[in-house]
Amino acid sequence: MNFKTMHLSPSFIEIEYIIILLLLTMEKETCQKQKVSEGKACEETDIGRIPDMLKETLTSSKNESTVMCQKCPSIILKPGLASTTNIEQFLPFMYQETASTTPDGETVKQFWCVDDIYSFENVGFSSTVGQIKYLTCADCEIGPIGWHDLLTKKSYIAPNRVKL
């Protein structure tokens, strides 16, 4: 009897293994079918879809280094006070051909978000335009380096317009 049970239990594990293997191969097959029909790599979509939400929390990291002005030695923000945020905002270019109230610009999609305006080391706030104020360097006044939302009181710095 003893021998039998000892023999039985490994066989159970073996069966479990076989079932798992079967399930895995079936899944792989359906994946491959999908791959053919959609013309996409199924592994890519599987991995890509789930961590999408996770990715946001993982990548919304704090600024590791001091945020500085691109043009002068002004310190804008000390490390660890802003977090990356995906939000879209149109910003006029820092360099304009002619001074105008309808300037050329670009839509920036990722910003450093600062909750409290007093977290800033040195920064300038423009006059109000609609619901926002534009941010500038406090020393040489180059800008917009970002914007401030008057409703949420949050400030956003465009990473490509400052020096990290």
Binding site: F93, F120, S126, E141, P144
Partner: peptide
């Protein structure tokens, strides 16, 4: 280093921190 004749100097600065 003052940076002039831009969008910012057109609209003006309210305050600085």
């Amino acid at each position: 280093d003052a940076f002039n004749a831009t969008f910012i100097s057109t609209i003006g600065i309210d305050f600085k921190i």
